[in-house]
Amino acid sequence: MKQYKVLLKKEWKQFLMEWKIIWFPIVFILLGLMQPVVTYYMPLLMETFGGSEGITIDPLVMKQTSGEVLASTIGSQFDQLGVMVIVISIMGMIQMDRKDGMLDIILTKPVSLISYVLSKYSSHLLLVLFSISVGYLISYGYTVFLFDPIPIQNVLLGFAYYSFWIAFIVALVLLMSAVFKQTAILAISSIGILFMIHMMKGWNRILDLLLPSTISAEAMNQIITGQGSEIFIHIVVTVLWSIILIYLTVQKLSIRKE
């Protein structure tokens, strides 16, 4: 436990040194801001830049509710560009230590692999959740300001559900970071797997129950309608997936063949 705290402190110092603690939330603030602003000003933008001549616009798009706008921040901004930013920013968490030999040095000290892996996971998860929550808060503020208020319970529960999906993403990148040494392969495989998991959502009901990405859709439902279906099962499944991925990371690092 003592070593875990020392390693965790080191991770946060490193975030500060690399300015990650500053620029990472800024990226999510920009992403969070984009959805309500663009949605609100879309008609004006269309008119200003060439008008809407020859373009048929779905009238429903113009009439998005505030809940839908906030949910789109998750679905369109955080789950697409945001996920790519997360993967690229945190993919070096174990890979860099393996590449430059620091992992070897740390493991010659009385540090357990579990402490090491958990310190990496928890510090990066906290950083990502903090950044997303700031972006989400900004998005919420702008949505309420430009559109209508959203019940606070829906906003908070929606974010809580979405946090489980983020926990899964960080666990997946953690494992990939322990498996691959080449940055490009690590990035492509992480984004590829996340994209596939996202695409498989909605194929059939049983698969949906097993997919960690379903909780992201449930988070959006919660924000829009104030209701989620089988949410407890989705939480348990996503948490289980994350635990499995963390366990596999520890196992991967414990095999020290090369």
């Binding site: 003592k2 070593q3 020392v6 390693l7 080191k10 490193q14 040194m17 690399e18 430059d100 030999g101 620091m102 070897d104 040095i105 740390i106 000290k109 009385p110 540090v111």
Partner: peptide, 23 residues
């Protein structure tokens, strides 16, 4: 090790404190 490695962003004393705390 043959090629000693450190967290290069750390200061000399800070690095030794980090290692010492692990012990």
């Amino acid at each position: 090790p043959q090629y000693p490695t450190f967290y290069e962003w750390m200061r000399v004393k800070e690095s030794l404190i980090f290692m010492g705390q692990l012990f």
